[in-house]
Design a protein around this nucleic acid. Structure first.
Lengths: 197, 197
DNA sequence: GCAGACTGTTCGCTAACGCCGGACAAGGGC
DNA sequence: GCCCTTGTCCGGCGTTAGCGAACAGTCTGC
């Protein structure tokens, strides 16, 4: 196993992961990128190292850039809080005292920090609906929560998929774009936070 | 001129620019990267689109990664203040009043913002000296100023070269590494700023 | 049951081109 | 003059990226 094979398989895994998130079939992605299905398969299996042009086309077909495949996935520009990862909020009673400030309620913290001076929006995306023809930026920060459907959020070079219950936070200065990729309408709660001062 | 040629030449320009900054000859870089000199020339001239493995080797030979060639150079993680770009400081008198608070002195602002609670260091690098075997991160921010020599600063995927009079500012959370690439000792002033609070 | 439309994979095959070695002209420096 | 370096160009080899077709497996619907 030489380093070439290692990097190939790493690249293939990233491609497979990205394609799976998009729920594209191999032939579907191939058609969208203008390449053959066998090539996509070969790349994912690490049998072939694609040319830079081909990899660029594959990235473009999924709304990202070639840097996606090389940048470590650890350093994220935003923070995603998966539904299963939400922590109870308001119930953090002192275990020793056993105090319970509330009963019959359930709060879960879905944002990485507590935020103030926010603008809440209840949104509705028709099938195929999107916001931001091209990724755009502005001041402030925002936080979104998907109630139903499936929302694709482009964050710089990253692509996040939000299923019902998932939420996302990011600074608005990161180029972003939202798109409903479900075959049903997508409902969401969106929070915009203007810059402080 | 199709898009392929465009991207090739853009890639070639980035490679040429990076190689020039390192002051490597074509053969020098080729030897360091383990490729032929003609290939380096062809890539720079946009005659050939290198394979991903080759481009990775070239990037590695110059202390960066393949993402360098694809990330837009506009979005910089840090801000470089070139010697020629420094603005006079302390002499910003009101043109109308014509007041001159000082005489016989010359101050120039070399950092993007005024900083407080700092730790200043006068450093000395022997030929070939470096700091940080691998890029490292920590809290806070820092600012450096080169008095003599030539300092190579790796900032994430970026590579900056500081000649005497140049300075750099960046958050310490960006992986960084410093290296004297001059054939003489490098003197510098380095400022470390711990996180606020 | 079986047809049809999917899924992903494998197998030659070929044209393309990445990559190399060598030769070339154009400077300095001595 | 000679020598060493600079970058470029050319011919050609060898690899392989990319393709089309055929493959087996799964699921749906008739």
């Amino acid at each position: 196993m030489n380093s070439k094979q290692e990097s190939q398989s790493a690249l293939g895994e990233r491609l497979h992961e990205l394609r799976s998130q998009h729920r594209y079939s191999i032939r579907g992605l191939a058609a969208k990128a203008g390449v053959s299905a066998s090539l996509v398969s070969d790349v994912e299996k690490g049998k072939v190292e694609p040319s830079i042009s081909t990899l660029t086309r594959l990235a473009s077909a999924m709304g990202t850039t070639i840097t996606y495949f090389f940048s470590p996935q650890a350093q994220s520009m935003g923070r995603v809080v998966k539904a299963v990862d939400r922590v109870p909020f308001g119930g953090l009673a002192d275990p020793a005292s056993g105090t319970r400030p509330a009963s019959g309620t359930r709060f879960e913290l879905a944002s990485p920090t507590e935020l103030h001076s926010i603008e809440a929006i209840y949104g509705h995306y028709e099938v195929g609906g999107w916001f931001g023809e091209e990724p755009f930026t502005h001041e402030g920060e925002e936080w979104g929560f998907v109630l139903s459907g499936r929302l694709k959020v482009i964050l710089g070079d990253e692509v996040h998929f939000l299923d019902p219950g998932d939420s996302i936070w990011f600074p608005s200065t990161v180029p972003h774009r939202m798109e409903n990729v479900a075959d049903t309408p997508t409902q969401y709660i969106w929070i915009d936070i203007p810059p402080r001062n």
